[in-house]
């Protein structure tokens, strides 16, 4: 990432908000999480990774917000949503862990993921 995402950076600044917009619109499935899909650092983040895998998503663009403090705060502003993780599909904010789980259980998430889910 060439944009400075350190703790001293204003999360509401155009640099950060534009970066988030580019990330969520530039990738079909984007997850802002604590840790990585391989090593989640929070149970809620890990759950969303498991749900996406269960949906057959092979390619998750994930951002470890613990390494990018300005993004951690920036996505809360971007989505007007106060908590992490945050899942975006095709540029649209979907929700956090509870919503991903609920949508997975009723089949909505698989439908939303459409072509991004295999199997």
């Amino acid at each position: 990432m060439t944009v400075d995402t350190g703790a001293h950076v204003d999360p509401t600044s155009p640099a950060i908000q534009d970066l988030i917009r580019e990330q969520v619109t530039g990738h079909p499935v984007v997850l802002y999480m604590k840790g990585t899909p391989q090593f989640p650092m929070c149970g809620f983040s890990g759950t969303v990774v498991q749900i996406l895998k269960a949906c057959g998503v092979k390619d998750i663009f994930s951002v470890n917000v613990l390494e990018h403090p300005a993004i951690r705060e920036g996505v809360k502003v971007y989505a007007n949503w106060p908590t992490l993780p945050q899942l975006y599909v095709n540029g649209e904010f979907v929700g956090g862990c509870d919503i991903a789980r609920e949508m997975y259980q009723n089949g909505e998430l698989q439908q939303l993921l459409g072509g991004n889910a295999q199997g």
């Binding site: 007007n80 106060p82 908590t83 929700g95 509870d98 919503i99 609920e102 949508m103």
Partner: peptide
């Protein structure tokens, strides 16, 4: 929608979500 409902809860919780509360599991 569920997203809209959760937003209502977060709006009601207000500044508690910015510090004192780290996360809510919502039904």
């Amino acid at each position: 929608s569920t997203v809209a409902r959760h937003r209502q809860v977060y709006v009601a919780a207000g500044d508690l979500m910015r510090g004192p509360i780290h996360a809510l599991a919502l039904t």
